[in-house]
Design a protein around this nucleic acid. Structure first.
Length: 275
DNA sequence: CTCCTGACCTGAGTGC
DNA sequence: TGCACTCAGGTCAGGA
């Protein structure tokens, strides 16, 4: 579910509530999500002060004095912030209680499909964590440059769609925003990555940045599960050009949007605008 | 190495 | 209503 813009939306909502607060309680309601949870997760969290809340790719990082907690929302994960003890809903797997200057908040991790995970590790081990070590650059950072992209595209025979989904190349894109970025860049998802050169390559990078920034500004895209932590929808769904629009007219040329399957995932594109 | 498929899970939607 | 089937914002192990 949540790609970079949705996760960033969650991070921005968590920051004022968590940063500087103390975790007064961590209620772990099942032993595993995607993987087994650390058996000492609650013990390592309770009583700790939260120093910072950051994001890397689709992962939220909650920094404590000695440890860092990683939260990945998988396909169907979401986080709610409440100013009173919430009524438990189905699939509320973890609930944190935080307190700051006497003000309490309850933060709930809900994930029906349990493809998400929560992990805790020593800060010193952060960079070598399996889900972080191999990640490519953040698309909104300077590390993601034309030179970088050109270099990585070289020799890649996979479709550009698969290349952009590969978190080792660029971190944080998922199915929606890859489709949308390729539409904005006028590149067919079927095109071999190593043939994205020249004009196409130069359009790709700003297309990725623009679509991510626009989506963050709208609170992400709510299709099924995604909600902002205050329960509001993400409104970027109204700005989608191709994702989920099979048969509907292209916003640029009115040709019906086409849907195909590539390595098990749906791709949506305009067969006329995207070559 | 690179690339592709299937598996992990639940719930919503569709068609009979 | 019920049932069978398909599909879904992600990733990872295993095999070609």
């Amino acid at each position: 579910m949540p790609e970079l813009p949705e996760v960033e939306t969650v991070r921005r909502a968590l920051t004022p509530v968590m940063t500087g607060a103390t975790i007064t309680k961590a209620d772990i309601r099942r032993p595993n999500l995607r993987w087994d949870l650390a058996p000492d997760l609650a013990a390592r969290l309770e009583g700790q002060n939260i120093v910072d809340v950051t994001r890397r790719a689709k992962i939220i990082q909650v920094w404590l004095a000695q440890d860092v907690m990683l939260i990945h929302l998988g396909m169907s994960g979401s986080i709610r912030i409440s100013d009173h003890a919430p009524n438990g809903r189905a699939h509320d797997h973890i609930e944190w209680q935080v307190s700051q200057e006497g003000v309490k908040h309850w933060i709930t991790f809900n994930d029906p499909r349990r493809f998400g995970y929560v992990d805790i590790l020593r800060r010193a081990d952060h960079d070598s964590h399996p889900s972080l070590a191999a990640l490519g650059p953040e698309p909104l950072s300077d590390a993601f440059s034309e030179a970088y992209l050109e270099d990585k595209l070289q020799g890649k025979t996979v479709p550009i769609k698969s290349f952009l989904l590969d978190q080792r190349q660029i971190a944080g894109l998922g199915n929606i925003y890859v489709c949308e970025a390729l539409f904005r860049a006028g590149i067919s998802p079927r095109r071999r990555a190593d043939t994205v050169i020249g004009k196409r390559a130069r359009r790709l990078l700003p297309s990725i940045r623009d679509v991510l920034e626009a989506a963050i500004a709208q609170g992400g895209t709510s299709l099924r599960d995604h909600r902002q932590p205050d329960g509001k929808l993400g409104y970027f769904v109204q700005s989608l050009d191709v994702y989920g629009r099979e048969g509907a007219p292209c916003h640029r040329c009115a040709t019906p949007i086409k849907a195909i399957r590539q390595s098990g995932r749906s791709s949506f594109y305009c067969p006329l605008c995207q070559r």
